[in-house]
């Protein structure tokens, strides 16, 4: 037990700086998203507090693993105030992965309904963004974009890497804070 405590107290911080993580993704220098986030951390209710609920609408589990990776010490989404919550009632953002299967369409609607406004939906992965390999079949819609749920931001990729997802979340944080309407807002791609 003592060795464990010692080991824990001496664990180095494994978290990589955001600038470094985003350097592979962002095109501009300095990264406008990061600048915006740093400037506005004290302003706006969603800066530094963004709660996510994940809705799997028929993905292949790769997007899920990348979402889970956001919580590991290397990406540590919590440093941005981003966290996964246990109930849609506590959530601000629904993260949709997958091409909306027939069996899950109702669950997606119910989850959206259960989330208090202001809320936003982030679609990640090719399947959810409508560029999936399989497309429409008898069992799935093939995209989350026309599922009746307004998607605010999309992150393409099969699956998108954790930094890309993180950028999508930062983007949503900014839009939500800008007082942008959460319904019918033009979908932004990351």
């Amino acid at each position: 037990m003592w060795s464990l405590i010692r080991q824990r107290l001496t664990t180095p911080i494994a978290t990589e700086p955001l600038e470094e993580l985003f350097s592979h993704v962002a095109t501009e220098e300095p990264d406008p998203l990061l600048v915006q986030w740093k400037q506005n951390i004290r302003r706006g209710p969603f800066y530094g507090s963004l709660h996510i609920r994940h809705v799997d609408t028929g993905s292949c589990n790769a997007c899920e693993w990348e979402l889970t990776a956001l919580l590991n010490p290397i990406y540590d989404a919590q440093r941005l105030g981003i966290d996964f919550v246990a109930s849609p009632r506590h959530a601000d953002v629904l993260v949709v992965t997958g091409g909306v299967t027939r069996n899950l369409a109702q669950a997606l609607e119910l989850t959206y309904e259960a989330t208090p406004a202001p809320k936003a939906v982030l679609a990640i992965g090719a399947c959810a963004c409508g560029t999936g390999l399989l497309g429409q079949t008898y069992a799935q819609r093939g995209t989350a974009l026309d599922s009746g749920i307004p998607i605010l931001v999309t992150v393409a990729g099969c699956p998108p890497s954790p930094p890309e997802i993180l950028r999508g979340l930062l983007n949503i944080m900014t839009i939500l804070n800008g007082g942008a309407a959460t319904h019918g807002h033009a979908t932004t791609a990351i």
Binding site: S87, A107, L108, T111, E113, A114
Partner: peptide
């Protein structure tokens, strides 16, 4: 603030 009534959350079912 507005209040909305929805069914009790049963994990999407």
């Amino acid at each position: 603030t507005s209040t909305r009534t929805v069914p009790t959350w049963t994990c999407g079912g």
